[in-house]
């Protein structure tokens, strides 16, 4: 990594402890991590190793118990909940294992959702949506609801939703976990295209070694410790 270019993600001494009543459950312990801008990195590890917690901290969905989380040069601990929400809408795109599309909206409307938080006009939003659906090859399915799409198609809509605001960072939590091999390959090909073509920073959590192989770097987590 070029030392002159600040990393997209920097974690320093990050720990996370959850409380279950009076019991403290450590999930992450002293994680130090740096992810370069434009990188595609994967995190692997057994269930309960803290992968998703790490992803939540990087994406500003959760706050560390101790340590510093810096993303795109911002110390997320310094942001209030409202500022964090605004920051996420501008800088982070999310892709989930179960797609998390709103079932009452069409594919295009789902993709348009994050744009409602921007000052874009309706016409501009439509243009952005069309471009995002074009990238994932689903322009022809724009009027379909999630229930009318296959799992792979739903995940591609979710990818279009994640990139429609042109975020700095794309967070993918088990993106192929619910897909068959062929659909999973299509999704991973898209990730590669986003990585190589659009120079997006991708951080992915996965159980699937095949999926992880598409990343530039693979991190292993074991009982909350980055190996």
């Amino acid at each position: 990594m070029d030392a002159a270019v600040p990393p997209m993600v920097r974690l320093q001494g990050v720990s996370k402890v959850y409380r279950r009543g009076s019991v403290e459950v450590p999930v992450l312990e002293s994680v130090d991590l740096s992810i370069a801008s434009g990188a595609f990195e994967a995190f692997m590890g057994p269930s309960g190793s803290g992968k998703s917690t790490l992803l939540n901290l990087i994406s500003g969905l959760d706050r560390p118990t101790t340590g510093v989380v810096e993303v795109a040069g911002r110390d997320l601990a310094q942001l209030s909940d409202a500022e964090l929400a605004d920051w996420r809408s501008a800088h982070v795109g999310f892709i989930f294992q179960l797609y998390n599309l709103l079932p009452v909206l069409t594919a295009a409307e789902n993709v348009e959702l994050p744009l409602l938080l921007t000052p874009l006009s309706r016409a501009e939003r439509r243009r952005h949506v069309a471009a995002a659906l074009e990238v994932v090859g689903l322009s022809h399915r724009r009027s379909h609801r999630p229930s009318e799409l296959s799992g792979g198609e739903q995940q591609r809509v979710a990818i279009a939703r994640a990139i429609v605001t042109d975020p700095d960072l794309i967070i993918a939590d088990e993106p192929t976990g619910d897909l068959d091999r062929k659909s999973a390959e299509q999704v991973l090909d898209l990730f590669e295209a986003l990585h190589h073509g659009l120079r997006k920073t991708l951080v992915m959590v996965t159980h699937d070694p095949n999926a992880a192989e598409h990343a530039e770097r693979i991190h292993h987590l074991e009982k909350g410790v980055l190996q």
């Binding site: 929400a85 996420r88 809408s89 179960l98 998390n100 709103l102 959702l113 994050p114 938080l117």
Partner: peptide
């Protein structure tokens, strides 16, 4: 619940 959490993850405020 999940839809609401998804919206909030995307940046929708409480």
């Amino acid at each position: 619940t999940r839809d609401i959490a998804t919206l909030r993850a995307m940046g929708f405020r409480p």
